[in-house]
Design a protein around this nucleic acid. Structure first.
Lengths: 240, 240
DNA sequence: GCAAAAGTGTTAACCCTACACCCATGC
DNA sequence: GCATGGGTGTAGGGTTAACACTTTTGC
C-alpha cells in the first residue's frame, strides 16, 4: 500500500499528508477536595494564544502514544502530577474553538487526594482553584469543566469517587460534605452515615480527628479497597 | 500570527503542517430492536484495508465540521439514515489500530425505530445484524461495539431509551423483552408492568397486537412524550 | 381441550425518611 | 455553662419482590 504521508525535515511545513489531517490535543480536568471545597488544577499559559491566562493542563498529542498516554504525559510535564487513571470526558471539536486553526481536543478527568496536591513553589505556573471561584479560562475550557462536573455527578452514583478525593483517613462529616457539594443537595446526617456503612466499603480507623471548631471530634474511617474489589466482581447495580 | 499549515494543490502530499497532525475518523454504532433481537447497522467496506469486511459506518472527518456533523454526514452517505441525535461513545486512539497510519476514531451511537430500518435493496452494502450473531469486523470495531453496549446498559437507567428502539406502538411484553436483552436479566411480568405504568411516561393505545403464536393478544402502549418532557424539567434522579 | 402467553391483585420484606436525644469539645 | 457539631436509635410510609389464578388465543 502506498504511504499517504511524508516528513520533510527542514521544510517550513514538514508534516505532509495525502488527506486532510488535524491538530489533536488532550486536556485534563483534575479535581481535588480540600478545605471543604472542590478544587480544580489549572496552569498558566506561557504561549499565545491566551498567553498569561489560566487553562486546563494539556497539549498536543504525539503520533506514537494513545490519547490517555498523551494526556498523562502533558499532565506530568506541566504539573508533576500522576493520577492512577484518567476517565474519558468527551471530544471538543467545534471548528472555531482555537483561533490558530481547527483543533480537536480529547478531554479527560481524574480525582486526586489532597496529599498529592503540588506545592506552592511554582504557584505562578500551576495552581488549584475552587470550582466556584475560577479565573477567566482560555479557549472553551469553561465548557470542558462543565462537562467534567456533570460526569463527576453521574459517576458518584456508581463509583466510590469520594474516596479518591479524600485523604486515606477521613471523617463521615467530611465525606458527607463532599457528596453534598458535588450533588448540590443536602443529606440527613444519620441516614447518610447508615447508608455509607451499609455499603460495606468503609472500615473504622483508630483515632479521632481534631477539629478546629467547637464540637465533638469525629471518628475516622478509611476506604476498604479489598471489600470494594470483591463487590465489583459481584453482579448487580451498585450505588454509593 | 503565522499560519502553521498550507495546502499545495496537485502535490503528492498536498496537506502540509508545521506540527504533527493526525487522521481523524468518526464511526457510528446504530442500534435497533426488531424480531425480538437487538441489531446493529454495518456496512461492507469497498476499499482496503479490510476490503469486503463488515464495519461500522464512518469515515474521515472534514476540517469544517464538528465531530457530530461528520459522523452524521458519513452515516447519511453510507446508509441513508438520519437519527435525531448522536450520543458520545468514546475515543479510540491506539496507534496500531489502523494498518495504514495512526488514526484517531471518535465513536458515536444512536437508537432508531425499526420503521426507519433501511430496505433490502442495497443489502450487500449496508445491513442489520443481531448483536449476538455478528460477522468478523474490520479494525477494532468489536471493541467499539462493546463500548456501545456498555453505554446502552448505563443509559437505560436514566433515559427512556426503550422507546427510541421500539415502534411508536408497542406491547408491554415487547418492552420488557427489550429491557431484558439489554440488561441481560429477567423481570417479573407484573412488577415490570406496574413500574413502567407508575413512571407515567406510557399511555394506552387503542387496539391489540395480533401475535403469531398462541396466547392472549397484548394491549398496545405508546410513549407519552408530553408527559416525559414535563418530567425532565422536574428535579431529581429519574429512572426508567 | 390444551398449551402458551397476557392481564390482574395481595402480602411481606425491605429501604428510605423523618425526627429527638445524648455526648464531647472549645471558648 | 453554653453553643457547636458528632454519634446513635426508632417508628411510619413507600417501594420492591415474590407469588397464583384467570382470560384469551392458536392449534
Amino acid at each position: 500500500m502506498a504511504k499517504n504521508y511524508t516528513f520533510v525535515p527542514g521544510a517550513e511545513f514538514p508534516y505532509q499528508y495525502k488527506y486532510e489531517h488535524m491538530a489533536v490535543t488532550t486536556d485534563c480536568v483534575i479535581f481535588t477536595y480540600e478545605e471543604r471545597q472542590l478544587k480544580v488544577l489549572l496552569v498558566r499559559r506561557a504561549l499565545e494564544p491566551y498567553r498569561g491566562r489560566w487553562a486546563l493542563p494539556g497539549g498536543f498529542l504525539r503520533n506514537t502514544e494513545t490519547a490517555v498516554q498523551g494526556a498523562m504525559r502533558e499532565l506530568r510535564e506541566e504539573t508533576s502530577l500522576e493520577p492512577s487513571g484518567l476517565g474519558e470526558l468527551g471530544v471538543f471539536s467545534d471548528p472555531g474553538r482555537d483561533p490558530r486553526e481547527r483543533v480537536i481536543t480529547l478531554a479527560w478527568y481524574a480525582l486526586v487526594k489532597p496529599s498529592k496536591v503540588v506545592g506552592g513553589d511554582d504557584a505562578e505556573k500551576a495552581a488549584w482553584f475552587p470550582i466556584d471561584d475560577l479565573p477567566p479560562l482560555a479557549f472553551d475550557h469553561e465548557k470542558i469543566l462543565d462537562a467534567a462536573m456533570e460526569h463527576l455527578r453521574r459517576d458518584i452514583y456508581f463509583q466510590p469517587v469520594g474516596f479518591e478525593l479524600l485523604d486515606d483517613e477521613f471523617t463521615m462529616p467530611d465525606l458527607q460534605r463532599l457528596y453534598e457539594i458535588i450533588l448540590g443537595t443536602e443529606f440527613d446526617r444519620r441516614n447518610f452515615q447508615r447508608k455509607m456503612l451499609a455499603s460495606g466499603i468503609l472500615k473504622e480507623y483508630p483515632g479521632k480527628k481534631k477539629t478546629p471548631h467547637p464540637g465533638r471530634h469525629a471518628s475516622l474511617f478509611s476506604f476498604d479497597s479489598v471489600r470494594y474489589d470483591e463487590m465489583k466482581k459481584e453482579p448487580g447495580k451498585q450505588e454509593f
